[in-house]
Design a protein around this nucleic acid. Structure first.
Length: 572
RNA sequence: UGUCCGAUGGUGUAAUGGUAGCACAUGGCCCUUUGGAGGCUAUUGUCAUGGUUCGAAUCCAUGUCGGACAGCCA
């Protein structure tokens, strides 16, 4: 999969971000250093992509987009024992989803195109290895893994370091032919055994692995190491700017050494590093995310509580929101922890613009309007989206028996409580002002029903419609309501930094990260669409979950509305 | 320990030798048939010490603190 800029397309709508990497690229563009800017996003297919990868995707595809360049999605698949086709497919889907309508529509992405695979270059990479041997810059080493470690730590040269070119060539060919077991021999670069940078102490280029590869099958039994494959893959694809995270900084001299040692004819790619994303109240390590999935601490890789792209998508976050987030956090070399509030803000801002407003009651309590005729049903006008007039209006049914939110009634109201209380008045959104006359309780003392009277002139257009009442609450008509499963998500961890001071992240899992309730929805919501976003008024944004059945919708709470009342109440 | 990198309000980022700005968060006010949204407003910062300079967040030196790497993982 490649995304390329069509010069024909117009200006990009959003202001392009600026950061130290884009500054470098901009300078190269100004200098006409390369005919075309070419980046790549190179995940290893050994797990699902997460929001940290989203940052990298937005950077790499974003740079291509902003500078009229190209960005390749490349599977960095040089280790058959850890990788799987499942991950190749999920990565493709996640990348496509994230850049949809952004890179593809504007830049001419062929979304059905296949990604690149480092493993497609194995033959050429092998040839490069031979070239290196011929130049006397690589040798076959017979040291065991432990010995290799030992020698390297003590800056001791391998006894095989000065093997002749012919012997190296013959041995390397026999490695390829499968004559040696795993671990028996390696191909190493001949650089400097006592280099201060460990990665220059004759690093491994190839290791033997008699393993089936998800993409190349049984063709190979020796596989190039990351350092060897990556720079050469970049070169082969014509990459100009190879952007990776900070932990590869120490590898950069090796990246350059390999390419420079080969005397290659074309312009060489260069590596630039930025800080990976850390987000509060979650973890980003693929290995640990895998652990949560495998130990069934979450429901799968796409569990909406996870920071995986698939989880975030399932939760109801749009690609636009995720991209806005990536834009806002910036790109630096500083390892900080980004406040999750920045993500939440990006999500709310996006959803506020697009979500259709609906009335839904999560924790119902029954209300009877005693002066409203039994059996009568009124249809009331309701606005679909106050932020977007073109979203239009809809009708919602009103009747004598309703549900309101349990939290919207207080028998003993705290200070500044603007909602329903005994003897008090409240506005029912789009409907009447009601007054609570009586609280009916069950044998256990729980509130069973509220008996209220409505000011029947107070609905929109009525004589007393303009009456000021402090609070407005949502409601649904009991007889018309649709039942739905609503999954209410909260942060996965109780601590902003789950692994701070070496603590086990599983010890701070939030036991309340998922709460499931059966909600009462306004009837139109039985036709909810997966691609729509909804705001259940005064509560939160919701999106339809794929678990939904025709007669039993399932909604995921993407994110709550800002709740200044919760803050106010918390002060008391 | 070695190598490399970094340090600007609570958090994340900008200022590329010339007025320390933005966003989020936090507080206050206004508005509101969503305690949403919106509007206005306030608080808080250049790791330390020296040096160069008319002038330093920026350049230099030293120190402090933090991070990454030291797999036949990527």
């Amino acid at each position: 999969m490649t995304v390329a800029n069509n010069e024909a397309t117009g200006a990009s709508p959003a202001p392009a971000p600026s950061d130290f990497i884009r500054d470098i690229v901009a300078q190269h563009v100004a200098e006409k250093k390369y005919p075309r800017i070419h980046t790549r996003f190179p995940p290893e297919p050994n797990g699902y992509l997460h929001i940290g990868h989203a940052k990298s995707i937005c950077l790499n595809f974003g740079i291509a987009r902003e500078f009229g360049g190209v960005c390749n999605l490349r599977m960095d698949d040089t280790n058959p024992t850890k990788e799987d086709i499942e991950y190749v497919e999920s990565i493709q889907a996640d990348v496509n989803w994230l850049i949809a309508g952004w890179a593809d529509d504007q830049l001419g992405l062929k979304s059905e195109a296949k990604p690149f695979f480092a493993s497609d270059y194995f033959e050429q990479i092998y040839e490069f290895a031979i070239a290196l041997i011929q130049k006397g810059k690589a040798y076959v080493c017979d040291l065991t893994p432990d010995e290799t470690d030992e020698y390297r730590r003590h800056a001791k040269p391998s006894p095989f370091r000065d093997r002749g070119v012919e012997e190296n060539l013959a041995l390397f060919a026999r490695m390829k032919a499968g004559e040696f077991p795993d671990g028996a021999r390696t191909l190493r670069a001949k650089i400097q055994v006592d280099a201060p940078n460990i990665w220059l102490r004759d690093p491994l280029l190839y290791r033997i692995r008699h393993a089936e590869h998800h993409h190349t099958g049984a063709k190979w039994c020796l596989y190039p190491m990351y350092d060897f494959a990556h720079c050469l893959s970049d070169y082969l694809e014509g990459i100009t700017h190879s952007i990776c995270t900070l932990e590869f900084e120490v590898h950069r001299p090796l990246y350059d050494w390999i390419l420079e040692s080969l005397d290659l004819p074309r312009a060489l790619p260069h590596q630039y590093e930025f800080a990976r994303l850390s987000l509060g109240y979650t973890i980003m390590s693929k290995r640990k995310l895998m652990q949560l999935v495998m130990e069934k601490l979450v429901r799968g890789w796409d569990d909406p509580r996870l920071p995986t792209i698939s989880g975030i998508r399932r939760r109801g976050v749009t690609p636009e929101a995720l991209r806005a987030f990536a834009y806002h956090i910036g790109i630096t070399k500083y390892n900080g922890v980004t406040d999750v509030a920045v993500l939440e803000h990006a999500i709310r801002e996006d959803l506020n613009q697009r979500a259709l407003r609906r009335l839904a009651v999560l924790r119902p309590v029954r209300v009877v309007i005693t002066n409203f005729p039994e059996g009568k049903m009124e249809e009331l006008d309701a606005v679909n989206n106050p932020e977007d007039e073109s979203a239009g209006k809809r009708k919602i049914p009103f009747s004598r028996e309703l549900y309101i939110e349990r939290d919207d009634f207080a028998e003993v109201p705290p200070p500044k409580f603007f909602r329903l209380k005994p003897g008090g008045e409240v506005r029912l959104k789009y409907a009447y002002i009601i007054k609570c006359d009586e609280v009916i309780k069950d044998a256990a003392g729980n509130i069973a029903e509220l008996r209220c009277t409505a000011d029947l002139d107070s609905k929109t257009g009525g004589a007393t419609a303009g009456r000021k009442v402090k609070g407005t609450i949502h409601w649904v008509s009991a007889a018309h309501a649709v039942d739905a499963e609503c999954r209410l998500y909260d942060r996965l961890f109780t601590e902003a930094e789950p692994e701070k001071d070496g603590r086990d992240f599983k010890s701070v899992l939030n036991p309340h990260s998922l709460e499931v309730v059966t909600a009462k929805l306004e009837p139109g919501l039985k036709d909810a669409k997966a691609e729509e976003r909804y705001q259940f008024e005064r509560l939160a944004y919701f999106a339809l979950d794929p678990d939904s059945k025709p007669d039993r919708p399932v909604f995921n709470r993407t994110i709550t509305l800002r709740d200044t009342w919760a803050k106010e109440a918390g002060k008391a």
